[in-house]
Write a protein that binds this DNA or RNA. Structure first.
Lengths: 211, 211
DNA sequence: GTCTATACGCTGATAGAC
DNA sequence: GTCTATCAGCGTATAGAC
């Protein structure tokens, strides 16, 4: 019965199958709670193939890390290439990150939410990676050109992107139960405009200010 | 030689010695890269004592988790108990978090930066814990009273605290090389006031607005 | 209560057939 | 290139002396 016994042909090449199985497990259970055997079972390949292709578990993590960072890098580049103001670039990146969080959850979870330095030896913090530097660079240019209020670069970048990152984190944790893109307009408004309700100047203050 | 051979008396009780050794190791190397033997050596106690007191490695993590959350809870309460406006309460919490990041680094690193759900079985995300709920509550009250611009609660809380959390993260990763309290004034200003430089109305716009 | 020595399962990794 | 069978070491946990 060659027909019945033939396993369903898998369209994905082996290395992709391994990687997509691995990222799923890593994101759901955490890197350290996943064994090579788990990946092997999930990907329907043998242990030997895993070691042949990636040299081991950490090798898989490395491959994922570099591929996903590269993907994120291209995303940032695609925004930079458009003719947008600094603020528009920041907002577009936030918009894309929110979309990715819904449609490509595992990428976002692995890139933004995992502690790579704890399992990839010699890996610097993710924030030192190219796409993150480029983002800070966008902010810096915006300040230089007078489009964005001038603060310390870390402060500005943190305030501009911190809210979005925090929402992504809470969405990934399941605390926010609606898709993030629904909040895009609000978070952009809240980030750039004042969060504080301006105090309506009293009659007295108006008089005083005229002096 | 009873005098010489007597080990230096350790002032800390055993359970504290274990916990402070454990948190140091967990924060520096990551929970999964620390073995019970490591903790035992660092704390100068025997394995038996560790299992007697905490029942194992996860027990230590549990104890740390609850004690440190309780400490954070008290910190938030101390702010709430003062007679401050909602905005002042938020700022005071940020100020204290920045101070803690320098003086009690391990607490902040363990509470804010570790992925507890990956190693404490059945533990909900840290954001569902009491102190974090209280913080969101402060924000909600500020919006209800008209002190803070009204947005979705998640959006507001994320924008108000996201910048500070992000700076804490980058400070812990070693990217920011100056103590966070130096940035307190700036981050509060950037968070609450507008980040965008208002466009100076042109003569034409002024005329148009008068119609 | 504290310690040491020991057991045992799991995991990452390899060897070698096909 | 892919697979199975097997290994060696580590890390958790326990038993039992003191």
């Amino acid at each position: 019965m060659p027909y019945l016994s033939r396993p369903e042909p898998d369209p994905m090449p082996m290395d992709c199958r391994i990687l997509s199985a691995a990222i799923k497990l890593f994101v759901n259970q955490g890197y350290h709670n996943v064994s090579v055997h788990d990946i092997q079972k999930q990907a329907n390949v043998s242990i030997g193939s895993i070691y042949k292709h990636f040299g081991g578990k950490e090798g898989i993590a490395r491959a994922l890390h570099s591929r996903l960072l590269e993907e994120m890098n291209q995303m940032v580049d695609s925004v930079i290439d458009q003719n947008l103001s600094a603020i528009e670039q920041c907002n577009r990146i936030i918009e894309l990150l929110f979309e990715y969080t819904e449609t490509r959850t595992e990428i976002i979870a692995f890139v933004l939410n995992a502690r790579h330095t704890e399992f990839i030896t010699g890996e610097p913090p993710i924030c030192t990676a190219e796409p993150f530097q480029k983002i800070r660079n966008i902010v810096q240019k915006g300040m230089d050109s007078g489009e964005i209020q001038t603060y310390n670069c870390w402060v500005s970048a943190s305030v501009i992107f911190g809210g979005a990152f925090r929402m992504i984190y809470m969405r990934l944790e399941g605390l926010i139960d609606r898709p993030l893109p629904e909040f895009y307009e609000e978070i952009v408004a809240a980030t750039w405009k004042t969060m504080e309700v301006p105090i309506e100047p009293t009659h007295l203050q108006k008089l005083a200010s005229k002096e």
